[in-house]
């Protein structure tokens, strides 16, 4: 099997392709003007590559047909990918890469009152934490999950909502400066990251300890990897949410603490 085949999309999605190309082009263009550090570039490209690879290659087939791979896909879309992209602080570079008209349009949208209200509401710590955990729980409700996995439109909505929510959440908690004129103290940002841990542990543990098959859709439509039983697949998926989901918070907290200590030193 040729290597290139693995990089062809399982299901072509114009929005995923266009969004990736546009963001990559903006970063490349802005690079010359804003001159990001090597670390920033590394984080940005790794994050973007991860997000693209899990959503627009043959990996997507396995995510559709194996529960634990679906959880890995969401770990990248909701946690790792947005985490790395936010860590690269790409806004300045992306803005520098935008043509004048694009920058003006962005300013106009950002200054529009309803958008400001919406953004400040979404930046509220309680709202952000609830949305982050609520979305994980919602898409994992057995009946919702069943429908999302058979309906390609809902499947895409699920993946996009996870990615956008991840970008938003990690953007708020990892970014030091004010976000949409809301400034959160390092303490509340750490508290937010701590607050998302227990719900993920509880949902992950509930899936891990379930004695019956919670997501029969994978058995109905067939599993991608033969020889792995339904319960084993479910348990690995539960562990991924339980441990790895919570792990990202721990890394995030260390980064915020380090950032604060570095600032105090200067």
């Amino acid at each position: 099997m040729d290597l290139l085949y693995w990089f062809t999309p399982w299901e072509e999605s114009a929005p995923v392709f266009i969004a990736t190309v546009v963001v990559a082009a903006l970063f490349l263009r802005g690079r010359a003007r804003s001159n990001p550090r090597f670390q920033q570039k590394l984080y940005f490209w790794t994050g973007l590559a991860f997000i693209y690879l899990v959503s627009h290659t043959q990996f997507d087939y396995y995510a559709e047909h194996q529960f634990f791979i679906h959880r890995l896909q969401h770990l990248v879309l909701h946690h790792l990918g947005p985490f790395l992209v936010v860590l690269s602080s790409p806004v300045a570079t992306l803005r520098a890469g935008m043509p004048e008209a694009g920058q003006r349009a962005c300013r106009l949208i950002a200054e529009w009152k309803p958008v400001q209200y919406l953004l400040s509401a979404l930046c509220n710590p309680v709202v952000a934490v609830t949305l982050f955990c609520g979305l994980i729980g919602f898409w994992l409700l057995p009946s919702v999950h069943f429908t999302a996995m058979i309906d390609w439109r809902l499947y895409r909505l699920m993946n996009w909502s996870m990615f956008i929510n991840g970008l938003f959440f990690w953007g708020i908690v990892l970014h030091r400066g004010p976000i949409f004129s809301v400034r959160l103290s390092p303490g509340s940002r750490i508290a937010m990251m701590l607050a998302v841990i227990p719900p993920q542990i509880v949902i992950g543990a509930m899936i891990f300890f379930a004695s019956s098959e919670l997501y029969p859709i994978y058995t109905i439509c067939g599993r991608a990897i033969g020889g792995l039983g339904a319960i084993a697949d479910q348990q690995i998926g539960g562990i991924i949410l339980w441990i790895h989901g919570a792990m990202m918070s721990a890394i995030g907290i260390l980064i915020v603490v380090r950032g604060e200590l570095m600032q105090q030193k200067h």
Binding site: W10, E11, M149, G222, A224
Partner: peptide
């Protein structure tokens, strides 16, 4: 099979 989300890997 893709339309109906049925697992199938011909390759």
């Amino acid at each position: 099979t893709k339309q109906y989300r049925a697992a199938y890997r011909p390759r």
